[in-house]
């Protein structure tokens, strides 16, 4: 009897406590920027695709839900001809982001991806590609790599000497 009354009293006291329930979806929860949610493909500061189709995200993916095909654009610049993520398989582990050498693939704080039809969980490149740089600003792979794919010439990159003059005879 006493325990019942005690329980009722304690329950009654909760009326004056701060509510913990968030009125989702009317109120959105705060998610840290490093939250691992929906995957996007970003662009560099010149609005070009950052992805160079190196296949490292696909190789790192433990559920093998990323498939892509490399193609070559102007000046041999690599880009993905198609880039497909099957989110119905994705476990949001973030390995793809860790593997990405160009900051192209990023996981963002968005988890609202529910669908009635599982087929709609398959995202193609046009669904993944955003227009900004995402979480990491100011990095352009082609300015740091030793290749000339139309972004900078040979020897113009970060910490590079001018191309060797083969006719030079000086020791």
């Amino acid at each position: 009897m006493i325990s019942i009354l005690r329980s009722m009293w304690l329950t009654f006291l909760h009326v004056f406590h701060k509510t913990e329930t968030v009125e989702y979806p009317e109120v959105k929860p705060y998610l840290a920027p490093r939250y691992r949610g929906r995957i996007v493909l970003t662009r560099d500061e010149e609005k070009n695709e950052r992805c160079v189709a190196c296949y490292l995200c696909a190789a790192a993916c433990p559920v093998d839900c990323i498939a892509l095909q490399a193609a070559e654009g102007e000046n041999g610049r690599r880009y993905p001809e198609f880039f497909r993520i099957n989110f119905s398989r994705c476990i949001f582990c973030g390995f793809c982001e860790e593997a990405c050498p160009t900051y192209a693939i990023q996981l963002i704080p968005d988890f609202e991806m529910a669908e009635y039809d599982r087929q709609n969980m398959v995202y193609e490149k046009q669904h993944l590609l955003i227009s900004g740089e995402g979480k990491y600003h100011g990095y352009n792979f082609y300015k740091n790599a030793g290749v000339d794919m139309g972004v900078k010439g040979k020897g113009e990159g970060h910490n590079e000497e001018k191309p060797v003059d083969l006719k030079e005879l000086l020791p």
Binding site: Y55, A58, A59, C61, V63, D64, C65, I66, A67, L68, R84, I85, N86, S88, R89, R118, Q119, M121, V122, E124
Partner: peptide
């Protein structure tokens, strides 16, 4: 053993 994309290659045709 590192073959990738098994669950995405044909996902554009059918997710199953």
């Amino acid at each position: 053993i590192r073959y990738s994309g098994r669950t995405a290659i044909n996902a554009n045709i059918s997710v199953s």
